[in-house]
Amino acid sequence: MLIKVPKKSDISENMVTDQNVYQDRRNILKSMGFFSASALLASPSAKAIDWFSKKEKVFETAPLTHNKAPSFSTDETLTPEQKVISHNNFYEFGTSKSDPIENAQEFKVDPWSMTIEGLVENPITLGYDDLLSSFPLEERIYRLRCVEAWSMVIPWNGFPLASLLNKAKPLGSAKYVAFETLYDPKQMPGQRSRFVGGGIDYPYVEGLRLDEAMHPLTLMSVGLYGKTLPAQNGAPIRLVVPWKYGFKSIKSVVKIKLTDRKPPTTWNILAPREYGFYANVNPKVDHPRWSQARERRITTGGLFSQNRIPTLPFNGYEEVADLYKDLNLRRNY
């Protein structure tokens, strides 16, 4: 006779699921605007009346030691840290900009494991501490241009992706680099429910050509504003490619795989006419539904700040233009 005795771990799993279901319902209701006061007015004062939050746990960040890298940095006005960490597109934690900071507080990043595999001589696995200690960290102040036509200026802390790839020694046959975000529906409400996650097929995947990946501007970031990354910004490690639209800069990376074929990329799969593989910032090539000629720079000043500025080719990083001299940028958007 077979009697299934529930193990202790089963029970706790059920409890976790209940919590998740509760959280999912809350997310769906919120997205319907039922909690519009708290959803819309994401201000400290409005947060006080958000009775539904259960914020016992707060995601911890820690100071990082790093060197400045002025030659890679812009001296434009920084986007305040509070905005960088509260205005995020990270659909794994919900589709509205204020969802990630709210839903990612309990995200666990230690232990972590990120692998560099595929067409390399020397596959690597990095644990949480390795991510922070294997390479000297630099501060690079980059512009970030979102495909939705807003932008920020962010002081990242990290190391060039090239340093990591060189350590893994790409084979001659490697032409592309594929990236993958953590898949963990228990922790990521957007991966549990299509409604919360914006209809994306998870895990989120991205890709670069090998020469793009090896470019000195291409950064693996483990921090911002001198501290380890907040969960909603892609902790513990994320890609930053400043001349491409923000969705290329994949967050919470667990896998980097060198390949000989162009890897699939999430937004391109979802809407191939709207989002290409390259996604280079380009004021001359509009998104089918909106213009890319201008952007609104998010800094301070509120509603009346005159923050609309022209968008520059390659987001102002003209030094990458050489990578694309044989490419029709209109067709390869």
């Binding site: 819309l40 007015l41 994401a42 201000s43 400290p44 004062s45 409005a46 905005k83 509260s86 205005h87 900009k97 204020s98 807003w150 609104r296 998010i298 301070t300 000043g301 509120g302 509603l303 009346f304």
Partner: peptide, 11 residues
Amino acid sequence: LASIDQLGGDP
């Protein structure tokens, strides 16, 4: 709230 920059990241 928008005028005092308290309406989320992008008022």
